[in-house]
Design a protein around this nucleic acid. Sequence first.
RNA 1: GGGCGCGUAGCUCAGCGGUAGAGCACUACGUUCACACCGUAGGGGUCACAGGUUCGAACCCUGUCGCGCCCACCA
Length: 919
Amino acid sequence: MLDKAFDPQTAEPRLYEAWEKSGVFKPSGEGEPFTIVIPPPNVTGSLHMGHALNNTLQDILCRFERMRGRKVLWQPGTDHAGIATQMVVEREMAKRQEPRRTEIGREKFLEKVWAWKAESGGTIIGQLKRLGASCDWSRERFTMDEGLSDAVKKVFVQLYREGFIYRDKRLVNWDPKLVTAISDLEVENTEVSGHFWHFKYPLENGETYQFPIAYDESGEPTEWESRDYISIATTRPETMLGDGAVAVHPSDKRYAPIVGKKCLLPLADRYIPIITDEYPDPDFGSGAVKITGAHDFNDYKVAMRNNIKLYVLMDERARMLDADYIPEKYRGLDRFDARKLVVADIEERGLLIKVEDKKIMQPFGDRSNVVIEPMLTDQWYVDAEKLAVKAIRAVEDGKTRFVPENWTKTYYQWMHNIEPWCVSRQLWWGHQIPAWYGPDGHVYVAETEEEATKEAIARLTAEGYSLEDINNMRRNEGGEGPLLVRDEDVLDTWFSSALWPFSTLGWPNATPELGEHYPTNVLVTAHDIIFFWVARMMMMGTHFLKEAPFKDVYIHALVLDEKGQKMSKSKGNVIDPLILIDKFGADALRFTLAAQAAQGRNIRLSEARVEGYRNFGTKLWNAARFCEMNGCVYDAVFDPKSAKETLNQWIIHEAGIAASEATAALEAYRFNDAAGALYKFVWNVFCDWHLELTKPILLGEDGPAKAETQKATAWVLSQVMKLLHPFMPFVTEELWRETARRDSALVIASWPRRDEFPAAEKAAEEINWVIGLITAIRSARAEMNVPAGAKIPMLAIGADAAVSLRIDLYRDLISRLARLDELHLAASAPKGAVQIVHEGATYALPLAGIIDIEAEKARLKKEIDKCVKEIDGIDKKMSNPNFVDKAPVEIVEENRERRIAFVERQDKLSAALVQISQD
RNA sequence: GGGCGCGUAGCUCAGCGGUAGAGCACUACGUUCACACCGUAGGGGUCACAGGUUCGAACCCUGUCGCGCCCACCA
């Protein structure tokens, strides 16, 4: 006997454990493989709403395909998340007032991170299990596992040898707080209010020129002033100390007289040239731009083009350097303090023209949230432009498809404008770059130090060194220490993530998994990591496996709060999925997310919605209880095609429609449509009508009709459990086991196929007639204020043979559900009766003396008005010759039929109105 | 500056050429033996605006207004 309600708190963990133990999440069977690799959550992470949605959708697909007999592998794992994890551990250390990482050294620090990972890294895995994720946990991977690390090394070395990876000194986005380089993608440009300072740079030797200050209509200058300076403007005054030139546009006549001359760089007291370059916009500011090649990406390009010297101003923490070209007073200052001082000093010298308030775009580190400083450093780069070629082609050729399709454009746009990818990070937690430097400064890239050393020895030997010379270069006496020094940097976390679809399957080894499960079927992710991750997996996959890593990329919504705002800790509007799971169960949360996962739209999550779908689960539970109480026991040998009762044929038919809708929707990643179709069927068809309609039979005497109805109802309920299982795995599994004491789990039951549901159009028509009539009677009763509990008689007026037959067949049903105590045929309606028109027949509720005649007249008039409106609309269409000529015949025919039906209805209603008026 | 998307019932959203829909909220009624996490009935919308295409437009096209998001070097 089922309990009064499903208790997710106790049942969910129990059911999950049973699944996991039985090994049903492992790929099995001979079916066509179906593969998804999980977007690996950060080990530092805990489950947020985005994860909940992302993994619910993946789980729905996996469970769906598993039930369809596919050999499903949902490959799980976590990401080492270099910066994030290192930050977390450092914060913990600080909290415990332990020595800093720089004090304990690299090795000790890494031990601590590993220890932390061992202790806390499993949190999110446990949370995914609570959600019901059917991953094959026996295959769980971590991006810093041995195997995955080998893959990283191999990829790095091979890309280096093929010329796709190189080391270069150039301007890079530098995070002065985290003290590392970061990639373009890790920079967030944010608009902030800043200032625009206008400075005078005096010309060398007191030189002057005529600068136009007024123009006529044709744009010719009419007035000039004599200037002994050039005016520049900047949002970052402190960088002026590193200016190497002032640039103007070659077409800018105003500055033509002084191009090629020099001006004084104030404070630094250096002379810098005035040059021309295409970069300055004559219409912006003064038209003259200070060129600080070492601290601005645009200026860097100008400097490179024009051979302008670069002056590096800051150290790794963005403090002014101790360099001879920087005046002493600024050395050691933080860049923002230096800025204040520079402005003050410029003003003091009378060189400050003006200060404007200005909105400026400022780059911030996405992790550290400090202003990013362009810095000239040595870093490792991936030539993304070259790698992108095949990745772009895979999408162009339709090998990989974005769903919804419009993300294709976003992908192309970024891929076509891709910049070199800076992959080195000055961190400790991550994959240390497999590069070693020799005593001669030469770099050796190899998978092992041994190999690199061999190469170095060969190279040095070729240069004429003897073995003894070489051994003397080793880093300790006796010639036994290491010859090479390893690069200290680690790789960008996304470098290893980029290999995820094949590294997790065992690559570079030719494992059976790799052969079977690569390329994967679909990647499920949100749009915010298309560039970070999807694009890079595409590049690595097409390069190393010669095939794109997935057939489909399904881009799902972002989960926002009720007001449509992004959830963030700082805003305090975060809804914790685990709290919702505690409160309503994982099934409710999952169904909510699926039901709202319409393509191309974000999800606004509200608790009320989750509660609503929890209620849906309860509804299902109670439907099952009803079945149980009424002897509807699942019978494995019941054949739906054998059903003789119209009611049973009908519900099987309807279930078939719902099943094919859900199947088609899931195949098209239309999760909301699938969830909606099932919700509607279960609640509004199965529960509201089928179960109600079966009551007279099930509560009646035993007989073949009752026996068949019990089996058919149990069978439909079983199909429902299967269909809902991908969405609500827990409650359905529990019911599956409880209601039939089955030993085989629902999780591996077979997905309902269309051909299992015999179509029954005639039965559907008949039952829909019954439903329509009951609804019409209820509606009239309610409108006429007949007490809900009162049983009243009803007469079918002048019914034809067909209607009479149906009345006979369904008398009990109609009477019960419409609360009638009598239902028979009559030639005409008695006086003062409420008359109902349904599908061309009239029914009378003889309520003379009880009903309000005026109210009844009003009700009939309202109905007639509706008919008139419909008929007018149709007439308007039909009287348009173009419509009859050009519209498809079916449409015209449909309108003609609808008109006939409405006219008939109107006639009957009018007759009723006439009669009641005369009574 | 470029790209993507959105404006449909009080709220959140489906629908994307042929009879305007759902959930929640709201109103009235209901202790019918599965379920009040329920049932029955009901109210509520010039589908942002203006043009165009079409026999026919919420849906396709163009423009306008409003609102998001992403990318971009204006010092």
